[in-house]
Design a protein around this nucleic acid. Structure first.
Lengths: 148, 148
DNA sequence: GTTCCTGCAAAAGCTTTGCAGAAGA
DNA sequence: TCTTCTGCAAAGCTTTTGCAGGAAC
């Protein structure tokens, strides 16, 4: 389901964020790539085609703003690059250690209450699994060639 | 409970890792700091006192070796620095967004099975919560002074 | 003798910071 | 006019890489 520019503008305004063109485009990109966990680089590479003067600094600025507002979630699953996604609940991230791909999976973590954390204010819950994805477990004969 | 050098040596040998002095000391440090989630810097700063010629490269080399062997777990809870700990099961990590401290909490994640991941080989499960720790939620009057 | 390990120096690469100009209220 | 935002350039920092000397087997 496409989200309209108007809806995005409202989302930003409701959070007290000035709906600049760059911010709308970043947010729109993340909505379209929902579950795709793009890196800052990927967001930049795509948007710079439409906004030639775009700076990577703006990507970082924007992501920080959106993250603080709770519209975007930052994923630190490995050490290479941070990844970003619009905020979704009740799902975890699986990263393949071979190909690096990230897959969402449902997990009912939002309902989990930890007695030992009763004195803590939990604002964000992340579940990261790592291992091998089906593709890397059973590569096709063609893929096996490439891996040689 | 202290772990002896002999036990550490055996742990390494069993994994096919040559039990060099540096590796034993790193592993020993992580055992002593169990649940303390030290950074590479902290490990280095402590051990360089006893091994003056120690290099940070060796810390990284050693950590990688120990991680691959499954003796150590790497924690990427934020973007600043990786943190390391000896492998423990069934616990999650809570990081305070104010003071940065990391607290372990028990969570029965190892038993969790996700139907959607039946085709995946899950090797590692991490649970990261973020929020405010009790100390930062209710700072003492003295601490409030410091924050001004 | 050969393989593995350590550590120095330098490089790599993501992210942040400083700052000036532009845009918006 | 004053605040906020963007983007260029440079810096910051953790981690990795190349390589040579040394240790272990």
């Amino acid at each position: 389901m496409e989200i309209s520019v108007q809806e995005l503008t409202e989302q930003l305004s409701q959070k007290g964020i000035r709906p600049s063109y760059q911010r709308i485009r970043v947010l729109e990109y993340l909505h379209r790539k929902e579950g795709g966990h793009p890196t800052a680089e990927e967001i930049y590479d795509f948007l710079v085609n439409e906004i030639p003067a775009l700076s990577k600094t703006t990507i970082y600025n924007t992501i920080h703003t959106l993250t603080e507002a709770g519209l975007v979630r930052t994923i630190h699953i490995d050490n290479d690059e941070a990844r970003y996604d619009i905020t979704l609940h009740n799902h975890g991230h699986f990263q393949c250690v071979a190909c690096g791909s990230i897959t969402n999976f449902p997990i009912d973590i939002d309902r989990v209450q930890i007695d030992e954390l009763s004195q803590f204010e939990v604002r964000e819950k992340n579940v990261y699994f790592r291992g091998l994805c089906p593709n890397c477990l059973n590569p096709t004969s063609e893929e096996k060639e490439l891996l040689k």
